[in-house]
């Protein structure tokens, strides 16, 4: 009967909150990229579930309540966009062209590298929309004939890379503007990168949030077209 306890939402919600709180504490103490809270929490929870042999389905019963909050959070991104709308309107060209360039670069590099390294056609296609926010990425991959589950997993991995070192990488390659950094992190790493960008700079986070929507919109139209060409 002990196992039933793990199947209550209480378990998944409690575990997620406690591990995340611990991750935030460790990150505040060390400032180490390896301890970026979202990535650390994901890895720690997976390890805990594997070690104690708790099925993912039991964890997900509570996990889905935490995940539920993501929906209104995306809607909430409208407020920082509204507050800084003058600065955004002044950057229409860099924002639109930056995202468009990112969409082409994403498909070319992700699917190109996977194809070059001998990936199967289904895998090559599954990598195509991996920088797009999950619900849109799933729609695209179903259209172009990849594996939706694989794409969903790669979207999360892509997001974690941007969250761990996106702002740092941008600084390293000489990008100084906060708007350009936010746009880069949001276009490459969608919501998970945006969450990190919000912690670095509110305006940068707002631009990243805008990039989630615009990248999704552009990709929904362009990615299936690009794959139809090859």
């Amino acid at each position: 009967m002990v196992t039933d306890i793990f199947s209550q939402p209480l378990f998944g919600v409690g575990l997620t909150l406690l591990v995340y709180a611990l991750a935030q504490l460790l990150y505040a103490r060390t400032r180490s990229m390896l301890l970026t809270p979202v990535a650390f929490s994901i890895i720690a929870i997976i390890l805990l579930l594997l070690v104690f042999d708790i099925p993912y389905a039991s964890y997900a019963k509570g996990g889905r309540y935490v995940l539920f909050m993501l929906g209104p959070s995306v809607v909430a991104l409208a407020l920082p966009l509204y507050k800084r709308h003058r600065e955004i309107a002044a950057r229409k060209r860099p924002i639109l062209l930056g995202i468009l360039a990112g969409v082409f670069a994403s498909v070319a590099s992700a699917s190109g590298v996977a194809w070059f390294l001998g990936g199967s056609p289904a895998v090559v296609r599954s990598l195509g929309p991996k920088s797009v926010t999950t619900p849109i990425a799933i729609g695209i991959v179903e259209k172009i004939g990849g594996i939706p589950e694989l794409t969903a997993a790669l979207v999360v991995l892509t997001g974690c890379i941007g969250a761990i070192c996106g702002p740092e990488f941008c600084r390293l390659i000489g990008i100084r503007s906060v708007a350009a950094t936010g746009l880069a992190v949001g276009t490459a790493s969608h919501g998970i990168g945006t969450a990190r960008m919000l912690a670095v700079d509110r305006f940068g986070g707002a631009v990243a949030g805008l990039a989630i929507g615009l990248n999704g919109l552009a990709s929904a139209i362009l990615v299936p077209l690009l794959f139809a060409l090859f």
């Binding site: 998944g12 997620t16 909150l17 591990v19 995340y20 809270p37 979202v38 990535a39 929490s41 994901i42 929870i45 997976i46 579930l49 594997l50 993912y56 964890y59 997900a60 996990g63 889905r64 935490v66 995940l67 909050m69 993501l70 209104p72 959070s73 909430a76 991104l77 920082p80 999950t134 969903a152 997993a153 999360v156 991995l157 997001g159 974690c160 969250a163 919501g191 998970i192 945006t194 969450a195 990190r196 919000l198 912690a199 986070g205």
Partner: peptide, 17 residues
């Protein structure tokens, strides 16, 4: 919501397993 957004992604990430 925005100051906790990273937390809300954690269950999606665990799903990768």
């Amino acid at each position: 919501l925005l100051s906790h957004m990273a937390l809300f992604f954690v269950p999606a990430g665990v799903g990768v397993m």
